[in-house]
């Protein structure tokens, strides 16, 4: 459904907040189950989830770290008397991964939005134009910076630095070596950009007009009302499920 960007922002914010507030794997699982049809309803490019398959190892690391710090439950893996992996640890590790997936899914709602309309929505929400413009620049320059970084790494390898066949310590040293020039290059670009903006009369007038327009329609208000109601039901359900899961220690 073609909804106003502000409505999509509202839905994304609700899912993000709930994913951060709740820690219980059952509640996060329920939230994930609800999120999927919502994403389909909003015509979010679900194929983008596939791009996150490369983070598989990160998920595993998250599960392992979580397992190490959560005690309790039956031990699944132990060395001597030390429990390396327990059932509780595994469940909470899965919860962390689910939270991550929900946050990515909420972000995908915004990925499908027209960037210009998203920024216009932020302006209408009284976010200062300078901040909106900074976000716009960030979005615009990320692919450029990635491209430049990739060219730099090509140049490093073409000058003989075989980063795949050396000790990790040496690779880290190379990264450390290029870090300063990299940051310097970014700052240099930012400075040049600010000069160009000044020269083109950035913020010469306090008000800006926009070629594109956005307007909330009846269906937007209905969706916001339904989302709010569903959120209340979800929180109530979570309270009923177990008092331990009441957000913000409201008891």
């Amino acid at each position: 459904m073609d909804l106003d960007v502000r409505t999509k922002l509202f839905i994304a914010a609700i899912f993000s907040v709930l994913a951060i507030v709740y820690q219980d794997p059952v509640i996060l699982g329920a939230l994930l189950v609800i999120l999927l049809p919502v994403l389909a309803f909003l015509k979010t490019p679900l194929g983008k989830f596939y791009d996150f398959r490369k983070l598989f190892y990160l998920y595993l690391i998250l599960i392992i770290i979580q397992s190490l710090f959560v005690r309790g439950g039956a031990p699944l893996l132990k060395i001597g008397t030390i429990h390396l992996l327990t059932t509780d640890g595994l469940i909470y590790g899965l919860a962390v991964v689910m939270r991550f997936i929900i946050l990515v899914g909420a972000g995908l709602i915004l990925v499908a939005c027209d960037t210009a309309k998203l920024l216009l929505a932020m302006s209408k929400m009284k976010i200062p134009y300078e901040i909106v413009f900074m976000i716009q620049l960030g979005i615009r320059f990320i692919p450029t910076l990635i491209g430049e970084l990739s060219a730099t790494f090509d140049a490093i390898q073409m000058r003989g630095a075989d980063l795949r066949r050396v000790y990790k310590r040496k690779v880290f040293k190379v990264y450390l070596e290029i870090f300063t020039p990299l940051v310097f290059g970014i700052l240099q670009k930012a400075e040049q950009l600010s000069i160009l903006l000044e020269l083109r009369g950035f913020r010469r007038y306090p008000e800006r007009t926009s070629y594109k327009t956005i307007a909330m329609k009846k269906r937007d208000y209905i969706v916001i009302a339904l989302t709010s109601a569903a959120t209340m039901v979800f929180i109530f359900g979570a309270i009923l499920y177990g008092k331990e899961q009441i957000p913000f220690n409201l008891r």
């Binding site: 140049a155 073409m158 000058r159 003989g160 300063t180 020039p181």
Partner: peptide
Amino acid sequence: SLVEIGERLGYVLQNPTQMLFTT
């Protein structure tokens, strides 16, 4: 590999800034 290509072919980009990475 890129390293092996670099041993045989030296390439200087149109934008040299992308090739300069040391202090």
